[in-house]
């Protein structure tokens, strides 16, 4: 983890739902796709945790959806604004030895970190298949990015307004794969648990206090005991997860 000042290079809407912010600064603390940053916004007490969509030596990029006062405030920040960021938090995804045909299963905002993972896989000579799920056409982003990496890419929308009508698991059940990586909402994870035929890695989201393991605000119980989503996660292997009983 590194705390530092990062300067907004650009902050623009990607479509009517999602925004993309590119921040310049030291990214040496980012060691794996699936890690996150925790962004301090002036006059908001707690930081905003966001998964890293992409990064290079000069900066990183997050994709976010304005859903509350903090993220709405973020949309108005102009280029050149300096932000206090904790960079390179959490464990991130790791590609297990011998995996040749992984699936990347994204849901909404959860498609964002899978792009950095896709690039990392391609860099290791592994070509994953990407399945990106959205509610409706207006939300779709990133299809071109995955396609440009030369990956077989599917898009689903729940209302059928774009790509294939249905859910990522509808596509998953028809594909050949030897592993999966996913990031998305809990209902999607429940469907993946019912569908998946292999091992895989899930990225979890939780309301956080600190984001670096100090407050125990985001703990989940796993088969190997309590784990902090922010520090021990956010990525957990399928085998270690204890699924919460549905309310």
């Amino acid at each position: 983890m590194r705390q530092g000042t990062y300067v907004i290079r650009s902050n623009e809407p990607l479509n009517v739902v999602y925004h993309r912010m590119i921040l310049e600064g030291d990214t040496s603390a980012i060691t794996a796709p699936g890690q996150f940053v925790n962004i301090k916004l002036e006059s908001f007490p707690l930081r905003r945790p966001m998964s890293i969509h992409d990064w290079d030596e000069s900066g990183f990029c997050v994709i976010y959806k304005p859903v509350g006062r903090g993220t709405e405030y973020m949309t108005a920040l102009p280029a050149g604004t300096a932000l206090d960021v904790l960079c390179g938090l959490g464990n991130g995804y790791s590609l297990p030895e011998g995996v040749r045909r992984p699936l990347l299963l994204g849901g909404g905002s959860g498609c964002a970190p899978l792009y950095a993972l896709a690039k990392a896989c391609v860099g290791k000579g592994v070509k994953p298949t990407a399945v990106l799920g959205y509610n409706t056409k207006d939300e779709v982003y990133g299809e071109d990015l995955f396609a440009r990496l030369g990956l077989e890419t599917y898009v689903t929308t729940a209302d059928g307004s774009y790509g294939r009508a249905g859910f990522v698991t509808d596509v998953m059940s028809e594909l050949e794969y030897d592993y999966f990586f996913t990031c998305g909402p809990m209902p999607m994870y429940r469907a993946i648990e019912r569908t998946a035929r292999t091992s895989g890695q899930y990225s979890f989201e939780e309301r956080m206090g600190c984001g670096f393991g100090a407050c125990m605000g985001c703990s989940v119980m796993t088969k190997s005991g309590p784990r902090r989503v922010c520090k021990d996660g956010p990525v957990f292997r399928r085998e270690e997860i204890l699924w919460p009983t549905q309310a």
Binding site: P45, G70, E206, R207, G217, C218, P226
Partner: peptide
């Protein structure tokens, strides 16, 4: 183990 999540709320 403590309480279920969410355990944190901003004010």
């Amino acid at each position: 183990f403590g309480n279920p999540t969410p355990r944190i709320a901003e004010c």
